[in-house]
Amino acid sequence: MARRWYAYNGVGDPLIPPSYYIASLPPSCKNGVRVCAIYAAGTGPVPIILSSNLRNYIANLYITLVAQPDSNPGIKKYVYGKS
């Protein structure tokens, strides 16, 4: 399934797809106190689904303030934050 960057709208629940809209460019944010963007399954205006892994990454961002997953610097990040 195709993945795209989706920007968080800043007001909705960050754990549900309608709180995001498709981004035409990759995010310039990376780390921070709230969700900036997610790399999620979908090609339409909102993500198809937020997997349990993606929801865990969102929760971990709020705890660590670092792009997720944070286990290895070389792996793809799926959740970015901003201040």
Results as ranks from 00 to 15, higher is better:
Leu25Cys: 12
Lys77Ile: 06
Gly81Tyr: 06
Gln68Phe: 01
Ser19Phe: 07
Lys76Ala: 06
Ser24Gly: 15
Asp70Thr: 08
Gly10Tyr: 01
Tyr21Leu: 11
Asp70Leu: 09
Ala23Asn: 00
Ala37Ile: 07
Val33Gln: 07
Ser71Thr: 12
Gly42Pro: 05
Ala67His: 04
Tyr6Phe: 09
Ser71Cys: 10
Asp70Pro: 00
Pro26Arg: 14
Tyr21Asp: 00
Ala40Ile: 11
Gly74Gln: 05
Pro47Ala: 03
Asn53Ser: 15
Val79Ala: 04
Ser19Trp: 01
Val46Trp: 00
Ala37Met: 06
Tyr57Thr: 08
Gly44Asp: 15
Ala59Ser: 10
Pro14Leu: 04
Pro69Met: 05
Lys76Pro: 02
Ile48Gln: 10
Asn72Cys: 13
Ser51Glu: 03
Cys36Tyr: 03
Asn72Trp: 12
Val35Glu: 11
Leu50Glu: 07
Ala59Gly: 04
Ser24Asn: 13
Ser83Ile: 09
Ser52Ala: 13
Ile63Ala: 13
Val46Ile: 13
Ser19Pro: 04
Met1Ala: 06
Asp70Ser: 13
Ser71Lys: 05
Gly12Arg: 05
Ser28Gly: 13
Gly12Ala: 09
Arg55His: 06
Ile48Pro: 03
Lys82Leu: 12
Tyr78Met: 05
Ala59Gln: 12
Met1Leu: 12
Tyr8His: 02
Ser28Val: 14
Lys30Thr: 11
Lys77Tyr: 13
Gly10Met: 01
Asn31Ser: 08
Ala40Tyr: 09
Val79Gln: 04
Gly32Ile: 02
Gly12Gln: 10
Asp70Met: 10
Val33Arg: 01
Asn31Thr: 08
Tyr39Trp: 15
Pro26Glu: 12
Asp13Gln: 06
Ser71Val: 06
Tyr80Gly: 01
Ile16Phe: 00
Ile63Cys: 08
Cys36Pro: 08
Val79Arg: 04
Tyr78Asn: 12
Ile16Val: 15
Cys29Ile: 00
Trp5Ala: 12
Ile58Arg: 03
Gly42Val: 11
Val66Arg: 07
Tyr78Val: 01
Pro45Arg: 10
Ile49Val: 14
Ala59Tyr: 00
Leu25Gln: 13
Gly12Tyr: 01
Lys77Asp: 08
Gly42Gln: 05
Arg55Gly: 14
Ser52Cys: 12
Asn72Gly: 08
Asn53Phe: 11
Ser28Asp: 12
Cys29Gln: 08
Ala40Phe: 06
Ile38Thr: 05
Asn9Lys: 06
Asn53Leu: 14
Lys30Arg: 14
Arg3Glu: 14
Gly32Glu: 09
Ala7Glu: 10
Pro26Gly: 01
Leu25Met: 11
Ile49Pro: 02
Gly42Asn: 11
Tyr20Ser: 02
Trp5Thr: 07
Ser71Glu: 08
